[in-house]
């Protein structure tokens, strides 16, 4: 068991087999995460970000979802080989998840006290009273006064509900936290509060995190590593500096950055990426990004590119970079 990479995802492939055809949601995705690190999974709707998260949690709805291939090695053990009962013991304890929408992630007919202590009592042998005490501590930790422990979710605002969800996720002190768009549903000033808090808790509790988002600004603030996803594949992967300041980039990454209006520069027109995301039921034969790519070449249409390492730890899945090396 390597100390360095306590989570390693290798060649993960997840398909949804529906009556209408096979949706290739995730195709050969690999990445690794060291203790205390944060990885940002960035991409647009349908890129397969959430499916990866569900894959790690072993929660891909089956049917129609199927994990076709790959390994998810967490603390030296392959999660995909675990029995459902073993997985249940890990979920919520060592690995936990923050869902995107705090409005629907909480049970509306249970008090916050019940919902936080539920996860504590499931994983730790604590009495009801002790679990409640721990729940109060968690609530204070995320910045909500413990007096409100007996309130119901509807009595909280959106930002506070998200804090409650975070409190539940952190209750058992997980070593891996998967946060699926944790701030997307929040207003910017509230988002700033939640980001600040998550950053602080991550430091205190030494939690590793996978942050799923489409907001490149949030990534710049919170992540150590970034994986840019497009149509089920990681097209560019590297340290934060490689992605934001490195010399070489995947054309999609360039497009993604170019499409955001820059607050510090005046531009008359944005440079959007032409066209649309390909249909995941009928992916192009070659490179998935090829139909929208401004630099496409003949080989892009027929041959799927492999990840090329442009500098140590920085890989780009594009034919443009394969040539230089050869």
């Amino acid at each position: 068991m390597s100390e360095k990479n306590f989570l390693e995802v290798k060649d993960l492939t997840i398909h949804y087999e529906t009556d209408g055809g096979v949706v290739e949601a995730v195709n050969g995705v690999s990445f690794s995460l060291a203790q205390g690190e944060t990885l940002g999974l960035v991409g647009e709707t349908g890129a397969g970000k959430t499916t990866i998260a569900l894959g790690i949690m072993n929660l891909v709805p089956n049917p129609p979802g199927k994990i076709k291939a790959g390994e998810i090695v967490f603390e030296g053990e392959d999660l995909l080989k675990k029995k459902p009962k073993e997985m249940r013991r890990i979920r919520g304890d060592k690995i936990s998840m923050i869902f995107q929408d705090p409005m629907t992630a909480l049970n509306p007919v249970k008090t916050v006290a019940d919902q936080i202590s539920e996860v504590i009592r499931l994983h730790q042998k604590l009495s009801r009273a002790d679990a409640l005490r721990k729940a109060c501590e968690m609530l204070e930790l995320v910045g909500i006064s413990a007096e409100r422990i007996n309130d119901y979710p509807h009595q909280f605002s959106g930002g506070m509900k998200q804090r409650v969800v975070i409190a539940i996720a952190l209750a058992c002190n997980p070593s891996l936290l998967i946060a699926d768009e944790p701030t997307t549903a929040l207003d910017v000033t509230i988002q700033a509060q939640v980001i600040e808090m998550m950053g602080r808790l991550k430091e205190e509790l030494k939690t590793s995190m996978i942050l799923i988002t489409h907001d490149l600004g949030v990534v710049a603030e919170m992540c150590d590593k970034v994986a840019i996803m497009y149509a089920g594949e990681v097209v560019e992967y590297g340290a934060l500096e490689d992605i934001y300041e490195g010399e070489h980039h995947h054309p999609y990454t360039v497009g993604l950055f170019g499409a955001i209006p820059d607050l510090d520069k005046d531009t008359d027109r944005l440079t959007p990426i032409d066209g649309l995301m390909p249909d995941p039921m009928a992916l192009p034969q070659g490179c998935n990004f090829c139909p929208r790519c401004p630099h496409r070449r003949p080989e892009c249409e027929t041959l799927p590119p492999k990840p090329h390492e442009v500098s140590p730890g920085h890989t780009i899945r594009c034919h443009l970079f394969g040539k230089e090396e050869a």
């Binding site: 506070m160 000033t189 988002q191 600040e196 600004g217 949030v218 710049a220 934060l240 500096e241 607050l263």
Partner: peptide, 19 residues
């Protein structure tokens, strides 16, 4: 409060109390 898509210029953030 807007997160900037850049790692150079993370400016001083004015955190608001409350909601």
């Amino acid at each position: 409060a807007i997160p900037r898509p850049s790692i150079r210029q993370q400016q001083q953030r004015i955190l608001l109390k409350g909601e």
